[in-house]
Amino acid sequence: MFDAEKFIEKTIDTLQTEIKGRALIAFSGGVDSTCSAVLANKAIGDRLIAVHVDTGYMRKNESINVKKMMEELSLNHRFIDASQEFYNALKDVKDPEKKRKIIGGNFIRIFERVAEKEGIEYLIQGTIAPDWIESGNHLRDTIKSHHNVGGLPENMKLKLVEPLREIYKDEVRKVARVLGLKISERQPFPGPGLAIRIIGEATPERTDVVREACYIVENEIEHAVDKGLMEKPWQYFAVLLPVRTVGVHGDKRAYGNIIAVRAVQSIDAMTCAYSDIPQEVLDGISTKITNTLGNKINRIVYDITNKPPSTVEWE
């Protein structure tokens, strides 16, 4: 069985031997990168710098909270607002694999800039097993290029360190609990962020729409879980489909986009079953989204596919 305490001990040891100079950790504020950061901090202390990049595709208030968290964890940190850079890079890009690769590449270029300025040689990432499995290689088919593996540019200068590479999310959570991290139960959020929750071009305007919809889905489901109405899903969010359908608003024709609600149960994301959301909760989500985003959205659908045949995120 997986032993979190032994894992922590061994990993700190390995990081101490592996990292000779200064290292930066790509810090999103999720369970994987936070765990990696805390382990690395224990291993190399002051030689570690946590870098959070606001890609412009973060959830509501996310980057502000991450900044707070880096302070609470007493990490040496840098906060970089690169929204415009990401929006520009994704202009006119519709293909999901292209989006993922551009985002992966952009992250690395930003980290390289920080590294050069601060004399850093190592890049620590919170990569976990499904990231490299699904990114594929000579033997395995590429399901999707995870930005931190399949999205890495070939000519990367930084030396990569991935302390969680062989473990899965449920095991990372065990490590996070032993480390006493308050984010141990936080739902996964993909590195490419909201950009892959918009089918087609991820414009800033569409990002605002899906950001609000994700916020509503998260709130409604979390309230329902707190009230004991349903089991907490593994992941729960909204996807914006830039397809237009007809509706009626105050006796007038409406012609807006669609929001798909996605919620799944899993322990490791390698297989998933769609969540059983009670009717009244679905009702609340539907009404809140269409009332808040009325001029943009007039239809809400619920995704009822398992993995396989689908995947968790739509792109």
Binding site: M1, F2, A129, I133, E134, L139, R140, D141, M270
Partner: peptide, 16 residues
């Protein structure tokens, strides 16, 4: 390893 998406899951189940 014949290149499956779940090869590593087989390893994990055995290890557990």
């Amino acid at each position: 390893d014949n290149g499956g998406q779940w090869t590593h899951r087989e390893w994990r189940t055995l290890r557990d």
